[in-house]
């Protein structure tokens, strides 16, 4: 069995190769999980098996694609890969909503594009100073982490905003009936949606390194980087994700809320799949 735990002094010089035979041992843990699921009759055994197979296939494919992109080293291939990641993430974020409108798809996509694009540009030019600017070794993993976090945040923000507006219908109409703008009427709903979307990020910042070691940092250490370098990267990633999440949720909530009101400042819930 591979001996992963290395001392900090030797970590940067020792990268243990994980063979296919080693992976087969790792698969044993999935078999244990499947066994527990079957034993308790959870109805999850099949999904777990399919999920495990998909993990292997999807990651292998991604690995080969990345090898190809790294080898060719062309800016347009990197940009295309980033766009693909963004499109898939947008669809995944919106797919969690019931009765999704094309408008929400557009709002989420634009929000993620702007937030992720800005954050990546900021990090790659000011912090990591990537050279050349499209270096896939940095841009693809950084963008993946940004898009992953904005995807979750956008989904939570949109879902929470919709449920808040429905729950606060009476309050919103009370504001509107007094002559309030839609911004004033939906202020509480927006605030709650933003809080719900940002809380996981805030909690993550609070416990990082204490409760969990982040995946990227763990990966770097396993790959042989010095833990001190790994934590610097992890700090960058944590701040990068916080910024991207905040920008995404702000754009999604502030733009999406407009769709709940007519030009005459009337609340319309029918088009959002809720009873008026």
């Amino acid at each position: 069995m591979p001996h992963f735990v290395q001392s900090a002094a030797t970590a940067s010089r020792s990268i243990v190769d994980v063979s296919w035979f080693d992976l087969a041992w790792a698969f044993g843990l999935i078999l244990i999980a499947i066994g527990i699921a079957r034993w308790q009759g959870l109805g999850l055994a099949q999904s777990m098996f399919i999920g495990a197979i998909r993990t292997i296939v999807q990651l292998m494919l991604v690995g080969y694609v990345l090898v190809y992109i790294f080898a060719l080293d062309r800016w347009y291939l990197v940009v295309a890969a980033l766009l693909c990641m963004l499109i898939v993430a947008t669809k995944a974020a919106v797919g969690r909503q019931h009765g999704v409108s094309r408008r929400l798809l557009m709002i989420t996509g634009v929000a993620m594009l702007l937030a992720s694009g800005f954050t990546l540009l900021y990090i790659s030019t000011l912090v990591v100073r990537v050279a050349p600017w499209y270096n896939p070794q940095y841009l693809i993993p950084l963008f993946g982490m940004i898009v992953g976090s904005t995807m979750n945040a956008a989904a939570i923000a949109a879902e929470r905003l919709a449920s808040e507006v429905v729950a606060r219908q009476a309050e919103i109409e009370a504001y509107l009936a007094l002559g309030a703008t839609y911004q004033q009427a939906s202020q509480q709903s927006v605030r709650q949606a933003l809080r719900a979307a940002l809380i996981p990020t805030v909690n993550g910042l609070m416990v990082v390194g204490i409760v969990t070691l982040p995946g990227m940092m763990t990966g770097q250490i396993l790959a042989g980087s010095s833990p001190l370098m790994a934590i610097r990267y992890q700090i960058v990633v944590a701040f990068m994700q916080a910024g991207a999440v905040a920008i995404t949720t702000a754009i999604v909530t502030l733009w999406y809320r407009r769709t709940f009101f007519t030009p005459a400042l009337q609340l319309k819930l029918q088009t959002h799949g809720a009873a008026a």
């Binding site: 009370a174 009936a177 007094l178 002559g179 309030a180």
Partner: peptide
Amino acid sequence: QELRRKVGF
């Protein structure tokens, strides 16, 4: 908005 200020609910 002006209408709603004049017609309270």
